[in-house]
């Protein structure tokens, strides 16, 4: 006799678990990225051809540093989930695992590097 309910068997499996979490994370980061990307475009235009002193003065402003770090965190998380879906769709077996791990290491490293750069240049530049 089956002792577990249908709900109990379904819970924690497949899209009832990680899939929904990733879906939500992709959507919430997408919403956050709309204003952040628009701000970023304005920021890049204002910084075209700037030298380091100008850039440091700009990134020392609290609001600029805050928005830049928010952008970086949300952007890399969004890219991380998006790349995972693409890799899962087109690769399989050992290649999938290897490319997935390499991509995640790379995106994590790039993201942390950006945050360090913003904090460092903003505070001590």
């Amino acid at each position: 006799m089956e002792m577990r309910s249908s709900l109990g068997r379904a819970r924690g499996l497949g899209t009832a678990n990680e899939g929904v979490h990733h879906w939500w994370a992709q959507k919430v980061t997408a919403i956050a990225l709309v204003p952040l990307c628009i701000w970023f475009v304005f920021a890049v235009i204002s910084l075209m051809g700037a030298d380091l002193d100008t850039f440091e003065a700009w990134i020392s402003v609290f609001g600029n540093a805050l928005l830049m770090i928010l952008l970086v965190l949300v952007l890399f998380y969004h890219a991380y989930i998006g790349m995972q879906v693409v890799i899962e769709d087109y690769l399989q077996g050992a290649a999938r695992t290897a490319v997935m791990i390499a991509t995640k290491f790379a995106l994590f490293t790039l993201g942390v590097s950006c945050v360090i750069a913003v904090l460092w240049l903003g505070a001590w530049g």
Binding site: V72, A79, L110, S113, C114, I116, A117, W120
Partner: peptide, 15 residues
């Protein structure tokens, strides 16, 4: 996503 390489280069080069 590839573009984030250049974003990182731009920010980190200041260091």
């Amino acid at each position: 996503t590839i573009g984030t390489l250049f974003l990182t280069w731009w920010l980190v080069s200041g260091l």
